[in-house]
Amino acid sequence: MLAIYGTSGLMYRGPIEELRRVLPTLRSARLRPLAVEVDRPDFADSGFRVPPRAGGDAQGGAPAPALPRTAAVAMQAYGDVQHPPVTRHPLERVQDVMTRDVVTVQEQLPVAEGWRLLAERDVGQAPVLDGAGRLIGLLTRAELLSPEHLPRPQDSALVWRAFLAQPLSSIMVTPVPAVTPETPLRRLALALLATGLPGLPVVDDGEALIGFVSRSDILKAVVHDPPLDLWAG
């Protein structure tokens, strides 16, 4: 399920597959398609190997003496108690990879403050909320650096000062799609490719912002265990 929010509130709710048809009707010039080629390396042949221990330690000394079986069993049991096994499951949905500690900005904040907040929190984007705390847009570094918004290098300091003083609502991406925690990751990937956005807000059934999921979150899931399962279902 996908929802799209703008300054007037909820504008669309429906299947992600309808995104390409719905976006043009919302007349937002800032939602641009992005062509992406994905290279999937085969890590099985990447050369990462742990060499077997050949009868001695790293300095070529004698092999360490084997522990008695009873002592080895006791140590294994102690280790199991100290480090219980973690239940693993495939990562299939947005809730498995999303960031729950969301950095947000208010629409009336000046551009300079938006820049500062993104830099301080080391993020590339932040959902924009109105005075009532409702999602209305997305602030991204790409929009902050867009030639469409930036003054020209030869412009006076007054022009640059005026740019930095304008509210974030003047340069944010809006309307902005949002997904639910139960959205399959494969459909999320389709939405990111269709919009060209670096990530999407996550909302609950009551339209409250509860998280954010970015391309970086998906990439982190790809390289961690348990494996990312994009192709199930």
Rank of each mutant, 00 (worst) to 15 (best):
R121L: 06
L118I: 13
V103I: 11
A142M: 11
P110N: 10
G133R: 00
G114I: 05
D130F: 02
G131R: 07
L145G: 09
A112P: 04
R152D: 12
G124A: 06
R134C: 13
T140H: 06
R141K: 13
Q106V: 11
P110Y: 02
P151V: 06
G124I: 10
L144H: 08
L135E: 00
P147G: 07
G131E: 13
P110V: 07
L150I: 05
T104C: 09
A126W: 06
P127Y: 13
E120F: 12
D130P: 08
A126S: 12
G131M: 05
V105A: 15
L144P: 03
E120S: 06
G131A: 12
L129Y: 05
P153D: 00
V111G: 00
D122H: 14
T140C: 09
A119T: 13
L135H: 08
G114S: 07
P153S: 12
P151T: 03
L109H: 05
A119K: 09
T140M: 07
G124C: 13
Q125W: 03
V103E: 08
L129F: 01
Q125G: 08
G124P: 11
E113G: 01
P127Q: 04
L138G: 14
E148Q: 10
L138K: 14
T140A: 08
L117H: 10
L139G: 09
L109Q: 11
G114P: 10
A126Y: 14
R134H: 14
L109C: 03
Q125T: 13
R121G: 10
G133C: 02
P110H: 04
L145E: 11
L129M: 11
R134Q: 14
L150Q: 04
R141V: 10
A119S: 09
R141Y: 04
P110M: 02
P153C: 04
I136E: 13
V105C: 04
A126I: 10
G114L: 00
P127F: 12
G137C: 02
V103A: 06
V111W: 03
